[in-house]
């Protein structure tokens, strides 16, 4: 049996979803963003909600997310995505609304918007890519940068006496009454990818169902910023990132009914 005999539509097991555009992504080779974009696109296709999903892109590496996921999108100012998503969802309650944000966007400049959108229990999904570094601007220290980790703005390693501690913002968000689902996932192995997609679907469904704010953190790599090969970055992430940012659900509860 040759490849030709196998390559038939009925034998297809995996291919790029049509929700993902043919535009080549600008991400570095091996970047976690690509997998996460793909999973969000697959989730939208499988849930059949392309016509009612509206995304909000951040400032950071994922600023061009709207070029790759074929749905209506708004591009936010740095850190303001949750405020924008708040209005989109409040004014179009029948829509599924998500933000896509990095650690600088969500956990530094946009901390106020993030916390208050979560605290109001906005019916949005927040997809949070935590690679412990500012990727787009060239690898500077992020609030999530690990202790001792070297970046362009802490070239001798993050000294917590000077620069504070890695911010576990998802734990903080899980404490808020407005969040219904907070989980920490990764996309470096097949099993993790399958789990991450389930989390994405659940978060999107929560937005549709008006259950409150869902936060899916993806502990990710930035192999360019970390100056490692993609595979090595995965290993480094398993060894170092997961210790500080352990995977798993932080919160999963039906939100209490509240009067709007």
């Amino acid at each position: 049996m040759t490849a030709k005999d196998i390559i038939k539509p009925e034998n297809l097991v995996y291919t790029k979803t049509k929700i993902m555009t043919d535009t080549p992504m600008h991400y570095c080779p091996g970047c976690s963003h690509g997998v996460i974009h793909k999973l969000i696109s697959e989730a939208i296709e499988e849930m059949g909600i392309q016509d009612k999903t509206i995304g909000v892109a951040p400032v950071g590496c994922a600023v061009f997310a709207y070029n790759y996921i074929d749905i209506d999108f708004q591009e936010a100012a740095h850190g303001r995505a949750p405020a924008i998503a708040t209005a989109i969802k409040r004014l179009q309650p029948d829509k599924c609304v998500f933000t896509y944000q990095g650690d600088g966007d969500l956990a530094a400049i946009g901390t106020a918007e993030t916390i208050h959108a979560c605290n109001r229990g906005e019916n949005i999904a927040i997809f949070f890519v935590n690679n412990a570094i500012y990727g787009m601007t060239g690898g500077q220290m992020a609030p999530t940068t690990l202790e001792g980790m070297k970046t362009a703005t802490c070239p001798y390693g993050r000294n917590t006496d000077l620069y504070g501690f890695p911010l576990k913002i998802s734990n903080l968000l899980a404490e808020l009454d407005g969040t219904c689902y907070v989980t920490r996932q990764s996309v470096h192995k097949v099993a993790n990818i399958v789990r991450a997609k389930k989390a994405i679907k659940k978060a999107l469904q929560n937005s549709m169902d008006g259950k409150g704010t869902s936060v899916v953190e993806f502990v990710s790599t930035c192999n360019s910023g970390w100056k490692m090969s993609p595979h090595k970055a995965n290993l480094w992430m398993e060894e170092n990132m997961f210790a500080k940012y352990p995977l798993g659900d932080l919160k999963d509860t039906e939100k209490k009914h509240y009067e709007k």
Binding site: D5, K8, V13, Y14, P29, G34, K38
Partner: peptide
Amino acid sequence: CASCGYVCPDACLTIYKV
């Protein structure tokens, strides 16, 4: 098994099987 497809960040792999 499509493991390659799952982990591919650029969605450039299509997998068939019989």
